[in-house]
Nucleic acid binder design. Structure first.
Lengths: 155, 155
DNA sequence: ATTGAAGTTGAAGTTAGCTTTAGGTCAAGG
DNA sequence: CCTTGACCTAAAGCTAACTTCAACTTCAAT
């Protein structure tokens, strides 16, 4: 155990489960600032673990790193979120989750119907066209969600 | 309207809402075969519209193109899915949707708790660590889902 | 003083699902 | 015949969120 109360990248990686390369990437993106030793190595205060927890939580809810950066930047002094900050920010996420759940539920119900009818029509089927986009509305019509993948990208 | 009952890429694109470039891409991937005219232009039978509906539906459920390719290849003669095929294949998707919905619901409930406690711990918080991965389980620990994005990639 | 592990950088690579571009070819109307 | 719009191909580009690589440098222990 180190005597200092500052953590190295390796230590933060080990404690958080976030790869060192990701930590460097986050710093480059302005998401996770680090101080430097005289030898130019990164040192992190303990509260980065909390900040990382916030980042992971937000990612799990579905926010992009850009959105997370924006959320963190909205805090005074760019501080690591306090309990109150957390409560305020995460309240907005709830609606987001609700929307996602509703969309999936609608899709599932549509699927039940479709299994029965077998229509599978681009125009009328709730599963192939869940957003109810009419075929005439032009190309590039946005179909629904990029859903949760069982095996996302290798992490 | 053309006299032939074969469709050009442009026509398929217009009727399906799938971009012509995507159709060419699908052909290259073996997802959507096309015949050629003597002048080397693509011609599609009408049932590609059904096949495309199947592809879109599967995408909306969350299957990757690779998985969709595999599913279609599993049909005899690589035929476009019939009503019975559709019923059989889509039954498996239901479980997938259920899992996704369950995961999101768990996340939402965890969020409710977390708003109250404010713990935001990488080890204990259901939102920052929904898969219950212990911090000691090594780097690269897979956190949960790559969730539905409100604005995925531009389509 | 030496050594081996851990840290540093910028640049390039990865994956999925397409889109865009450049440089031609084809088909139908006038 | 000529023009115009739709089509063709191969290759490169795009986005997000990282990872990998190569070529050093620093740190802590012996």
């Amino acid at each position: 155990m180190k005597s200092s109360d500052l953590l190295t990248v390796g230590e933060v990686a080990a404690r958080s489960g976030v790869a060192a390369s990701a930590l460097r990437f986050y710093e480059a993106e302005g998401l996770l600032p680090a101080t430097r030793t005289t030898g130019n190595q990164r040192r992190y205060p303990r509260h980065v673990l909390r900040r990382l927890a916030f980042i992971r939580a937000a990612q799990n809810i579905g926010l992009s790193l850009d959105e997370i950066t924006a959320a963190l930047a909205s805090l005074p002094d760019g501080r690591t979120p306090t309990r109150a900050d957390w409560a305020r920010l995460s309240r907005g996420w709830r609606a987001r989750l609700d929307e996602q759940i509703a969309a999936l539920t609608k899709l599932r119900d549509g699927l039940e119907e479709c299994i029965g009818c077998g229509c599978l029509s681009l125009q009328r089927c709730a599963v192939s066209n869940p957003a109810d986009v009419s075929a005439g509305s032009g190309p590039g019509a946005a179909y629904l969600p990029r859903t949760l993948r069982v095996n996302p990208t290798r992490r």
